[in-house]
Design a binder for these strands. Structure first.
Length: 361
DNA sequence: AAACTCGTCAACCGCAAGTAC
DNA sequence: CGTACTTGCGGTTGACGAGTT
């Protein structure tokens, strides 16, 4: 159909608004209401287009706008809403009184997005970019992937800590031994989970001894990695696989097997998560949470999701409604931006592209 | 002190949905 | 029903200030 410009470019001022223009616009709207934005500039004596006036009013001059730094609660809300709504800033803004979509968008792009990236979380999908727990769960659900995983780990032996090598060897041996038994265990766990829904009972004792070895090893590997050569790498984090992503705030820790059927993963397999939400997302209650809370000394003031950071904790996907099979690694990182980041210093490391883990992923 | 880099955020642009005629 | 117009939205730009070299 084609459209003309929203206003006549001739004689229309652009750029920053002056206090005088603000006064004119504010006074006019308070007296007359904005009415038709297109005719407003002429009526108000402004050399601006209606669009510019509307933007100035809605984003800056409106009396109910809250200015200043975003509070922790607001930031939490934005992250949660973004994980559900994506870049629908106006919808997010509607749930944050006094904040405009533009302000939220800016804050996201300049603060939150960078922080998430730094913490290894894809700001688009909210999935961990590379998450050891997902690697392990993927491997456990799909034993064939153990080949790749062990290859991955094996190829980098020179860089790795002995604990990681032990992890590799265990994975290899798990692959070589009875994978049917492996799947059987997973299926049993699935059944048990369905029975014990909302009651996260530690089930490690029922795992094969190799599982126990694995669980014992992972924290050590993470600690090793967090102080090892990984942190010196500057290679960009692996991009998350966002294809087919369907935001699902109720995602629980699960993984896919090779047939793409979902196999809920036993939450007791790995250590407790860095993140969990207790309000807006569905997560199984966990008897160890109070202990962790006490340990970390952190609790969100708004009782939103709480984030735990301990030295040897593997994150799970409880805050990651992204693709369950998205590649992500997660080992500790130190973060220094500000105090708030203390809680989000997650276990993280970056894998150089030269490792060639595409096949694995 | 100047040049440069980086972070922030107000403002602009183009598109699409909604509405009036 | 089709067209013109308005409004709202999300992506992007660019000015500006602070910090660094």
């Amino acid at each position: 159909m084609g459209r003309g410009p929203c206003c006549d470019k001739n004689g229309v001022k652009k750029g920053p608004w002056t206090p005088e223009e603000d006064d004119k616009l504010t006074t006019y709207i308070q007296l007359q209401g904005h009415g038709n934005w297109r005719s407003l500039p002429k009526n108000a004596g402004l050399q601006r287009c209606g669009k510019s006036c509307r933007l100035r009013w809605t984003n800056y001059l409106r009396p109910d706008i809250k200015r200043g730094k975003f509070s922790f609660e607001e930031e939490e809300t934005i992250i949660q809403l973004h994980s559900i709504m994506g870049n629908r800033w106006s919808a997010i803004a509607a749930r944050l009184p006094g904040r405009t979509d533009n302000e939220i968008k800016n804050y996201w792009n300049t603060h939150i997005r960078k922080r998430l990236l730094r913490n290894g979380i894809d700001p688009v999908t909210h999935a961990h970019l590379l998450d050891l727990s997902s690697i392990l769960s993927s491997a456990l659900c799909n034993p064939s992937s153990l080949i790749s995983l062990s290859t991955l780990v094996g190829n980098t032996q020179a860089l790795l800590n002995p604990d990681i090598l032990r992890l590799s060897s265990i994975l290899s041996s798990m692959k070589q031994e009875n994978s049917d038994l492996f799947l059987q265990q997973i299926q049993e766990n699935q059944l048990r989970n369905s029975l014990l829904q909302n009651h996260a009972i530690p089930t490690l004792s029922s795992q094969p001894s190799q599982f126990q070895n694995l669980v014992d090893l992972v924290p050590a590997c993470i600690s090793a990695a967090s102080t090892g050569p990984f942190l010196n790498q500057t290679t960009p984090l692996m991009p998350a696989n966002v294809e087919g992503f369907s935001p699902n705030p109720t995602s629980t820790f699960s993984c896919r097997n090779s047939q793409e059927s979902f196999v809920p993963f036993n939450e007791g397999l790995v250590s407790q998560p860095c993140f969990y939400r207790n309000s807006t997302t569905t997560t199984t209650a966990n008897p160890t949470v109070p202990e962790l809370e006490e340990l970390s000394g952190f609790q969100s003031p708004n009782n939103g999701y709480r984030i735990f950071s301990t030295d040897s904790v593997i994150s799970t996907r409880l805050t990651s409604p992204g693709p369950l099979n998205s590649p992500s690694t997660y080992i500790n990182s130190s973060s220094t931006e500000d105090d708030k980041e203390c809680y989000s210093s997650l276990l993280k490391f970056e894998i150089p592209e030269s490792w060639g883990i595409d096949d694995f992923l």
